[in-house]
Write a protein that binds this DNA or RNA. Structure first.
Lengths: 343, 343
DNA sequence: ATTAAAAATTTACGCGCGTAAAGTATTTTG
DNA sequence: CAAAATACTTTACGCGCGTAAATTTTTAAT
């Protein structure tokens, strides 16, 4: 508990009796020194409390231990949750996560990449906006910094893609809905910004075809990331529509469903499974709020934990590989049906 | 469009015809050089695309342009939104925001401060966990780095506090509820972690007293930040309780209200103003989801924009002041009543 | 115990920029 | 227009650490 003030690594070398280059090696990677040396350093560290200067450290290093994480929208609880999970994994693996959100704006997305570049990151975990993304700068960036996409894929960009298997998950919930009532119509945005939306639309059409049902698309107009608002607005129209061929609505994602449920409630339309209900609604993603909608939302749960873990591991494996791997890896995780009260 | 590759400031000095020390001054603060020089540099910048090395820049600077932002929980849309707004302001004012979330964990909160310290930040905007916060390390930190609290106050800590006027806002909504129906009971957590909760409880008691009504507290047990879950669980109990002296519930915050509404729906209890409704519920904060609850939530809107702006300005004023100010500044913003359908 | 291999130390240099001091050029003031 | 004030250039040093090469010490293997 002498807690003498240590100014730099030189001084710490003096008091700890370890040479500075060895200390440098230790701070870069603790297990790269002999176990006995590691123990000595750690003992000294407890008595003297020294942290290497972050800036001096990274200035000359070919590669830092920084891992950038970029998500489309930090204010979206879905992304907040998955980003948080990834951060945990990155940290445990001895790296330093830096989290940025693109607020749904393509310019900001590119700017985030630029800002990360000056951190000399070892790699990036990147959930792009999707269709709205500015591909040119992103592709250029991915050639310089190992980048792994997650959640939303940009074909051929980066080291690979970790996401969910929309084909499986949408097939699963369509099947469930058909078994328990009328075949669903598909409620989505006409021009979605997220590539998953296109995959889900296709998966819906395919699943309906396989089950021998006539598909029905309901496409909300609207731009941006205010999905609840769009779901609400179009939802008001849909619940009043007498010509709808079905009483069951499958929403492309939970946020649309949340808006839809709100509209249904506002219109006095009862949603759910009970005899007094006239409509069923399901979503996709198991959004953190889907447990508290009225009624609670039947949906597909994406395996946050698995996606986060696999993303972190895949990227770091590539980062740590001595020779660059030139194959692009794609891993899709199956979704799980979460049966609640809305369908 | 020569876009020759510039390696460092030395090279950029050569091609731009400006001396390196002047460039250094410019990058530190663009308006600190003569306007004509600034123009010349910016012209060269367009042709050659050079960015000073972030790490080398900050290594020897007494003070960086980094501003740390810490919020209790990034997954909470309320904090996500206010953090995002603050980030925008910080950026516009020529600083570099670094956003961190404490995930509701006091150890992580302290660790976030430690991590920020190594960034040599010019200042910190800090929304502490509150009662759960580890005051010792926080106070020590605030003595070394200019820190301004927002959202939640720790008495006497830091440069000051920017928040909302719970006394005014709770008084406002209590008054509204009393004018339009039965006086409200107050629904809250028994041991809230957020200091605002105590202020709101006190404000409720005061407002009820002034209006000559008997206050009634409903206190949910539970720890942590899963407010919706707690609101739901205790809500199930409350809606079944026949001994409740009132049909009106004022929730300490919107997240509790969201859980409460979900519980009421589940129990078949109609909430709202209509003749078929048997209960009224109000919240506090104007949470981003409160527009989509069923029914939509009557609440108090905190002035996100004003709080964010004032926080950023106050901190940066202090950071830029040559002599340290030793007075602690406290600014509270009034809330605004948002009348929706739940009360 | 001897030898080879692995790890730590010593020495030395450089990274890119901040910053200070002294001198020179430019702008402002009266 | 001259003098004073301001801004810029030149020169020089240092920040704290990464990293390479040569040497010495420690460990593992025979």
């Amino acid at each position: 508990m002498t807690t003498k003030k240590i100014k730099n690594m030189e001084e710490f070398a003096a008091v700890s009796g370890i040479s500075r280059p060895t200390l440098s090696k230790f701070f870069n990677d603790p297990v790269s020194v002999r176990a006995s040396t590691k123990a000595r350093i750690e003992a000294a560290l407890e008595r003297y409390d020294f942290k290497p200067n972050l800036y001096a450290m990274n200035q000359n290093r070919r590669l830092t231990k920084n891992i950038g994480i970029i998500v489309p929208h930090l204010a979206d609880p879905f992304f907040a949750k998955i980003a948080r999970t990834i951060e945990d994994h990155i940290q445990v693996m001895g790296y330093r996560p830096v989290l940025l959100g693109s607020q749904g704006r393509p310019e900001l997305e590119v700017q985030n990449l630029e800002n990360l570049r000056s951190l000399k990151p070892a790699g990036i975990l990147f959930a792009p906006l999707g269709r709205a993304s500015n591909r040119g700068p992103i592709e250029a960036f991915c050639k310089e910094v190992p980048t792994l996409l997650f959640d939303a894929n940009l074909e051929g960009v980066g080291e690979g893609f970790i996401g969910s298997n929309n084909d499986q998950s949408v097939g699963l919930i369509v099947d469930y809905l058909c078994r328990t009532g009328e075949p669903p119509a598909f409620f989505e945005m006409k021009s979605p910004s997220n590539p998953n939306a296109y995959k889900r639309r296709a998966a819906y059409l395919k699943a309906m075809g396989q089950l021998g049902h006539q598909p029905h698309l309901i496409q909300a107009i609207g731009d941006g990331w205010e999905f609840e608002e769009i779901g609400f607005r179009e939802g008001m129209r849909v619940v009043a529509d007498k010509t709808l061929p079905t009483d069951t609505i499958l929403c492309s994602n939970d946020r649309l469903a949340i808006g839809f449920l709100s509209a249904a409630f506002e219109s006095g339309r009862r949603i759910g499974l009970g005899p007094d209900c006239s409509m069923r609604v399901a979503g996709h993603d198991d959004h953190p709020f889907s447990r508290f909608t009225c009624p609670t939302l039947t949906t597909i749960s994406q395996d946050y934990e698995a996606i986060a873990k696999k993303s972190a591991e895949t990227l770091l494996t590539r980062v740590e590989a001595e020779s660059p791997v030139d194959s692009r890896e794609e891993v899709l995780f199956d979704g799980r049906l979460v049966m609640r009260h809305s369908a």
